[in-house]
């Protein structure tokens, strides 16, 4: 049975007819049309579907959309500024060549965002631990780790969020 449910995604409220069984990843991609969030394994293993809920990284493939009522959802589209300028983490991924096919990138960047919000300048070990649930088939992770480290430095220096 569908009900009208309000979800706040990237600071915008969407009123959506939802079934309780609808998964957050499908709602974001198919009903809202924000396709930056990827669906890989659908089982919690790959991290491609990572979004932030109240600032924390969760797997949207294992989350019922209905449980996100009253919470703030942030997808990769929400990191970009109003005029389209990239967030420092996104910019660092570009600068350091941390993107190849790009399928893991949105989830990787959002996991990194949550890490940098918690620890401004994480160690390499902390970065590795934090992204251990985000699988990348292409890059070999080295450039991703460098990009997150660099983004941490930029954000700390400039005081951006």
């Amino acid at each position: 049975m569908k009900q009208l449910i309000s979800l706040e995604i990237n600071d915008r409220v969407y009123d959506l007819p939802l079934d309780p069984r609808d998964l957050l990843v499908d709602v974001i991609r198919k009903k809202v049309g924000l396709t930056g969030t990827k669906k890989g394994c659908g089982q919690g293993d790959c991290g491609a579907c990572t979004v932030l809920v109240d600032g924390k990284p969760i797997l949207s493939c294992l989350t019922l959309a209905i449980t996100c009522r009253g919470k703030k959802i942030t997808t990769i589209e929400g990191l970009t500024g109003d005029t389209g300028e990239l967030h420092p983490i996104q910019q660092a991924f570009v600068d350091y060549g941390a993107v190849q096919c790009g399928f893991c990138t949105p989830g990787m960047i959002l996991t990194a965002k949550a890490l940098l919000d918690r620890i401004a300048r994480p160690t390499e070990e902390e970065i590795k631990r934090s992204i251990s649930g985000n699988i990348c088939r292409c890059t070999g992770y080295k450039k991703i780790i460098e990009a997150i480290e660099a983004a941490g430095n930029t954000i700390s220096a400039e005081g951006v969020k």
Binding site: G47, P57, I58, I131, G133
Partner: peptide, 9 residues
Amino acid sequence: LGSTQVRTM
């Protein structure tokens, strides 16, 4: 336990 995301959930 699991990953960052799994521990959050």
